[in-house]
């Protein structure tokens, strides 16, 4: 009886062992897959690590390049402004010359009218003389030139307005630079932590104060529409109205 019980226990254990082997047969390929996966992933992780390292080292160059673009834009804008200034000076000179010409025509006309009234019997030759001098025509040409010069003046003012885009893009670029520097700081901190865990010394990145963009408006937009200025004017008017109402209330007491 006792022997039969022992045999049953042995068979039960053998059954358990069989189950274990069956389970093992199922599990071994999964473990093998995990090992294969780890074998594939480790170089991948090393690759990611190297990429982060590489990207982090390239970020300062990108930031410097953006700064160089801003500086180059500022220099080019300054050169354009020099030309616009020079044009404005030339236009002022031309305006003065044209005004002198107009005054000259006026004096000639007065002298001619005086001559005509003093010598009435020129048998129609006075009108021919007047027409030959073409004062009216010349005056019209000067007036036409003046309007062209006014247009050039307006155009140069418009160029100046458009050049404000330099300041606006400089602020946008500064905003991008700030973002890049923040990413670099995060990546550098990540590398620093990874380095600490693996016993490798990776210096933590610190943004150079001189290269840090301190002042910019990330919402800066080049928009020549009047919407924003109208919003400003409405708020200012509302503010004035409120202030005036407060004053009126004070006096009404």
């Amino acid at each position: 009886m006792g022997q039969q019980l022992n045999m049953e226990q042995v068979f039960q254990k053998l059954g358990d062992l069989k189950s274990f082997f069956v389970f093992g047969q199922k599990v071994v390929p999964v473990i093998q897959k995990i090992i294969d996966f780890m074998r594939d992933v480790v170089p991948l992780l090393e690759n990611v690590n190297n990429s982060i390292h590489d990207s982090t080292s390239k970020i300062p160059k990108a930031a410097t390049q953006i700064k160089n673009v801003t500086n180059a834009n500022e220099i080019a804008t300054s050169e354009i402004l020099d030309i616009v200034d020079s044009m404005s000076l030339d236009l002022t000179k031309i305006r003065t010359e044209l005004a002198d010409l107009k005054n000259g025509f006026f004096s000639q006309r007065v002298a001619l009218e005086k001559f005509g009234s003093e010598f009435k019997n020129l048998n129609g030759k006075f009108d021919a003389l007047k027409s030959g001098m073409s004062i009216d025509e010349l005056e019209n040409k000067v007036t036409s030139l003046e309007s062209i010069i006014d247009k050039i003046g307006t155009d140069s003012t418009n160029i100046t307005i458009s050049l404000q885009v330099q300041d606006i893009t400089a602020q946008q670029l500064a905003s991008v630079n700030h973002l890049i520097q923040s990413v670099q700081k995060r990546l550098s901190s990540l590398l620093f932590d990874l380095g600490k865990q693996s016993g490798v010394s990776i210096p933590e990145f610190d943004i150079d104060e001189e290269n840090r963009d301190k002042s910019f408006n990330e919402d800066a937009r080049y928009d020549r529409g009047h919407g924003k200025q109208e919003l400003v004017d409405n708020i200012i008017n509302e503010n004035k109205k409120t202030s005036q109402e407060e004053i009126d209330k004070l006096f009404a007491r």
Binding site: T157, I161, S162, Q164, V165, D167, I168, Q171, N217, D219, A220, R221, Y222, D223, R224, K228, Q229, L231, V232, I235, I236, N239
Partner: peptide, 30 residues
Amino acid sequence: VTTRGLKDDIVEALQAKVNNYIVKPFTPQI
């Protein structure tokens, strides 16, 4: 004279007692 054209910015500037406010880009007429 600034690029900041949000309502909160304008109100903040008025509270600091600026007399008036222009949003860039501006014209000589403005």
